[in-house]
Design a protein around this nucleic acid. Sequence first.
DNA 1: CAGTGGTCTAGACCACTGG
DNA 2: CAGTGGTCTAGACCACTGG
Lengths: 237, 237
Amino acid sequence: MSRPRYSVIKDYIIGQIESRAWRSGDRVPSENDLAARFAVSRMTSRRALQELSEEGILVRTQGLGSFVADARPRSSILEIHSIDQEIKARGHTHAARVIKLGEKKADNNTALLLGLKKGTPVYHSVLLHSENGSALQYEERHVNPQFGPAYLDQDFTRITPSRYLSSISPLTEADQTIEAVTVSKPIAKLLEIAASEPCLKVSRRTWCQQGIVNIVTLYYPGSRYRLGGHLKTEEPQ
Amino acid sequence: MSRPRYSVIKDYIIGQIESRAWRSGDRVPSENDLAARFAVSRMTSRRALQELSEEGILVRTQGLGSFVADARPRSSILEIHSIDQEIKARGHTHAARVIKLGEKKADNNTALLLGLKKGTPVYHSVLLHSENGSALQYEERHVNPQFGPAYLDQDFTRITPSRYLSSISPLTEADQTIEAVTVSKPIAKLLEIAASEPCLKVSRRTWCQQGIVNIVTLYYPGSRYRLGGHLKTEEPQ
DNA sequence: CAGTGGTCTAGACCACTGG
DNA sequence: CAGTGGTCTAGACCACTGG
């Protein structure tokens, strides 16, 4: 059961980009070049280039060629994905550092958002996620212990909180707001940015079938991250 | 210059789904069926089904067939709302000021994004929208004249560009990215904020059935605006 | 088993870009 | 002009699904 040839060609191209042999704006080999080099038909080399173009890794122009796209990360607003998967999907290395992990009594606001009584014990975690060694996301989370009983026993350098929680109780719903803010000095320091640098703040509350799982606040350096999405109207009238 | 055949097949399938002739879960004709019906090769009918699958309109399973996907709820973050409607929905007063309105030759980047040749004349507008007298959104737009022929004759203090354009050619698709940035001094002045204040930047490209309508850049003061939405997973497994 | 989608070939003609 | 990507053909073999 061998891998499809177009997929091998994709990996080759991704490898070249990751190793910085080919950089943003560089032209990559043409369909014909790749077909000859990999001894496949042009339809097959074309598929590799086409898919990389759809994935935003290449930009193609008729008559000109295919070029390595601007490397800034994108994520789909539609999908709630785990940051590690998102980073790995870009072919990069994800690492997480656990800043805090423990139990807290829910304050007024946390209790309200989680639908619990004030003072109820909740799990609290703060993580810093990095992409290829560069800080990308500060993550603070308050978890309803009911939906993640072994939360405090997890090794969050190996599995993200989001993945652990969704393995216990599948996500069914979420609320989300997106803002542009500056962050406090301690957070700026962790994110390796100046305190004046604008950041994206994503505040999210997630539900499983049985109730509210957790509330999350994420901060991304504006210079290193953007949210992206593609939408289609269901019924163009 | 006829439309590609795979695109004709896609439209046929979309038409069947829109007219409710084919409904969620129904099986659509196979690659071979469509190839015979449209007198094309299987590679061509396959492309139509493949693209619709990537767009989430069909779901394909080897050995089984291709099926109409469930209609999915979308995040309101992704709904394209007219800023005036949004403000009025809050019971507030919307006002718009026209900063620029005219014709420009498309530069390299604009041409690329609009799918036009460099130097093609495009319409260009800059507006400032306010809510109860307080600046809320800086809007810059480059419009393909083909899809808004009377763009320059509109009174954008009375009808927003977005509403005018969608009255001409209904919106079918959009790309959007969201970033946290600081803005240039002139824009900061218009928005009545300090140049150091973080802003949300929304970059959007919209399509109608026939092609790319326009590209838009919006800036919102981070202190006065946030994007919000509610999402539901399609299939809680 | 017949039918489905997944991969692939070796050609073809075309529109487009730069020099 | 030579080179690029965009569309397309008429075949092929394969893995997979249900009956």
